[in-house]
Amino acid sequence: MIDLLSYGAFFLSVALTYAIISLGLNVQWGQTGLFNVGIAGFVAVGAYVSALLTTPATADHLGGFGLPVAAGWLGAAVATGFVTFLVGALTIRLRSDYLAIATFGAAVAIHLCILNLQSVTGGPFGIGFIPRAFAGLADRPVAFSLANLALLAAVVLALYLALEHLARSPWGRVLRAIREDEPAALALGKSAVRFRLQAFALGGAIMGLAGATQAHFIGYIAPDNYQPILTFQVWAMLIVGGSGNNRGAILGAVVVWGIWALSASAVAGLFPAEQQARAASLQIVMIGLALCAILLWRPRGILGEARIMSRHVLRAAPTATPPPSTKSET
């Protein structure tokens, strides 16, 4: 029973860290239509910045400033927001797939940097001994994992409320206006480039925060955690849950992470040890096929895009806003 409880808390905590990334992606894609293929890289920036700020001093690599965990999280969000801003500033004026290519390249470059800048990041060995929240409870595992789960749940809830508020604010309405009809938004005097860049950087900052929470939850980070497969999982989460919907982003994270964890234990149970690496690639094939199938048959995901309008408008004209995926390019 206790085991089950601890495992449940562990599972949900990991799923919630993914939910934070997914919420960040929803700001970029769901609300603004910006395609980010470099999620893994931006999450890595957050994880490493926070780890460097909070770990105790060490001779192996730079950093070890020993700051409190909260300072690490804040630093991670700010630093990642800045990096995403730079990548966005480079490409956001150009056609939409250049942003995809540039973020893909940024993730490759970031992965290469954390792998090679051994004096800063510890190189392939990564960084260990990252302080965990509620370290004082470490001798009572159940209380410790429940406290961590509560903390992550609080972070997700706070982000959810803030993002919902933001989506309904004038700022959020401008973003959707730009996504749905850019010339009209421009005609109203809204600078599409500036709003897109703000949304992109905000989403990046949230991803950085997610990287930090993940690093502090696991206690150890290494370059291999930030492979393209992470990007892919998060995309699957948002698409499954329903892009444009913050609740969908959270639900998708829990569902996809659940499927992933279940299929991983199925692989571990069903295949002999020497075939496990091979069978693990089938897991990825499955998620890939699922993503393509959803794009083909149910582009709105489980929940679909949330209708975010003034209640009065909804009462007058009860038509849903079209999801971004059915919009055709003109």
Binding site: D97, F232, W235, I239, I284, I287, G288, L289, L295, S325
Partner: peptide, 17 residues
């Protein structure tokens, strides 16, 4: 008539598969 970016995303899924 899907948006360009949906095609890009589908190609991303196809690549991993």
């Amino acid at each position: 008539g899907s948006a360009v970016i949906i095609l890009v995303m589908a190609s991303f899924g196809a690549a991993l598969t």
